[in-house]
Design a protein around this nucleic acid. Structure first.
Length: 274
DNA sequence: GAGAAGACACCTGTAAAACT
DNA sequence: AGTTTTACAGGTGTCTTCTC
């Protein structure tokens, strides 16, 4: 998907990208061998081709694409950097900063789940993040990452951050994580099915008073939050990509953004009716 | 080659939303 | 309850094409 993307090039927006796709210039390779493109002067075409060559040179560097891609289009890089992607969710004491305490951090790389607990191994978390290129959260841009950044001032965050909240909203799935999960067929174990973030605060307080089972439950709740992010990300990516490549080349590709918009309106209408 | 018209990217301000 | 990023809409400036 990354190599079908042109909006990371200077002066290329969604309309121009759609224009390229309509002309059969679907991938970087297509664009690099073309002699002329309507709407583009030859000098600008050569300049854009040189820029694409640079994109190929830096293909495996997330830090190259992060400042160039619109944030809302980071999902296009998901598959490419998936091998070094991680899913993250934190629990806190619920207080306001500077009294806020990070109690649990869950980090899942698609193979192994790691959890970092206040008073046990929380200080190991920054190191665990060092090898991650792409982080996936739900509303992390507004909660998890700012909190972690404040808590660990020298934390190195991955170059690419995918916030599922906004990607799912674009696909027509509005609401919090717990509300959206069932719509993707996700069901939580009975023990944590009805828990929310505030319950996580209460569980931590119970644990502080000596109830070890409260911590176990809190960790299970956090594991569910983190693991489900992978399921949601996979399906959201499939939905987005399916709109691009599902039915054929050019025309489907060019209609992508308008289809996203149409789907969003349709879902909102259905939600309102139901 | 110059001017006009159109298309487009980009900037700014505002409102909405979900996390613990 | 506070935070703050994002989506969205509207305005503006730039670039390209077209016509003469």
């Amino acid at each position: 998907m990354l190599k079908r993307t042109f909006v990371h090039l200077p002066g290329v927006g969604f309309r121009t990208e759609a224009h390229f796709w309509r002309q059969g210039l679907v991938t970087w390779e297509d664009f690099l061998v073309v002699e002329g493109v309507s709407g583009l002067g030859s000098a600008r075409l050569r300049w854009l081709q040189a820029e694409l060559q640079q994109s190929l040179v830096h293909l495996d560097e997330p830090g190259y694409f992060a400042p160039r891609l619109p944030v809302g289009e980071y999902w296009r890089a998901f598959r490419h950097f998936r091998a070094k992607a991680a899913y993250l969710d934190i629990e806190t004491s619920g207080a306001s900063w500077p009294h806020l305490l990070v109690t649990v951090v869950g980090l899942y790389d698609g193979r192994a789940m790691r959890q970092f607990v206040q008073g046990h191994n929380l200080e190991e978390f920054p190191e665990a993040l060092e090898d991650v290129d792409l982080i996936v959260t739900f509303n992390g841009s507004q909660f998890d990452l700012p909190v972690l950044k404040a808590y660990f001032p020298h934390l190195r965050l991955p170059p690419l951050h995918l916030d599922l909240r906004f990607l799912l909203t674009r696909l027509g799935f509005k609401g919090g994580l717990k509300r959206i999960e069932p719509r993707f067929g996700i069901r939580r174990p009975p023990a944590v099915e009805h828990l929310d973030g505030y319950d996580a605060v209460l569980l931590w307080e119970r644990y502080q008073r000596g109830d070890r089972t409260a911590l176990d439950l809190l960790l299970e709740y956090n594991r569910e939050d983190v693991a489900n992010l992978e399921t949601l990300m996979e399906q959201a990516f499939e939905m987005c990509q399916g709109l691009l490549v599902g039915g054929g080349p050019g025309d489907k590709l060019s209609a992508f953004n308008s289809q996203l918009s149409a789907i969003k309106k349709k879902r909102l209408k259905l939600t309102a009716e139901s």
